[in-house]
Amino acid sequence: METKDIIKPENLVYQKSRLMAEKQFNFCPGCGHGVVVRTIAEVIEEMGIEHDVIGISPVGCSVFLYDFYKFDVVEAAHGRACAVATGIKRVQPDKFVFTYQGDGDLAAIGTGETMHACNRGENIVIVFINNGIYGMTGGQMAPTTLEGMKTTTCPRGRDVKTMGYPLNITPLLAQLDGVCYVTRHSVHTPGNVRKLKKALRQAFENQRDKKGTSIVEVVSNCNSGWGLSPKAANDWMVENMFKKYPLGDMKVDGKLVMDMNAPR
């Protein structure tokens, strides 16, 4: 059959979510952010909650989320997304609220807000993109930067003696009683994206059922920050990031499922 005969509306099996706005993403070519942002829209569309959801986009590569979605979004100060989310959720408990934070926002400047929102078991979804670097500001060291990894503020590689160790924060958050679901995913293969989508769906359902805080971490590439092509960045990520930040569930339905003595 000719291609032009296949490309017909009735044969359409995949396209981006209708909740994506017209505005083009400002992410670098091949950046994992784009996939996560789109997958969230797919979950929200499929759950039919677009009229009851508020996204929070704090400072970082994700800050322009309000331009990309066709539902309500509030931009937040750097590090304060979880507090803004709490402020919204407490006056509107039956609306869906999610934050979309980078590693600097969640695990550096916003550690306090993140830790305490989780400790209060705020019924929100926290989407946490861990690419081991500050992307928006041009590639500086982040709390999750790996030992020896080069960034503009550790150009000779992160020296843990003077710059601290890579912070694997989600296992810490998983141990807080208010947290019901903690899982770590990636978007470098279609299979992983599908798993991420299930996890995001689970997270939003947890919120609907008021089970406490759900955290979906996505280990992702940063092509411009790492100075690699998208494909090479993904390969480097699998080789290095996954060692320190292994994929998989850490807490499901309030029960820890991770091996606490596994090497971190």
């Binding site: 508020i54 929070i56 304060r80 919204i88 959720k89 006056v91 509107q92 306090g112 807000e113």
Partner: peptide
């Protein structure tokens, strides 16, 4: 009304920002 003790004033004012963005009296 919601009454919540935050973990810091920085967090508290950002909770106010969130609540205010929904048009409630915060």
């Amino acid at each position: 009304m919601a009454v919540l003790q935050a973990e810091s004033e920085v967090s508290a004012i950002n909770m106010v920002y969130g609540g205010a963005s929904t048009g409630h009296r915060v």
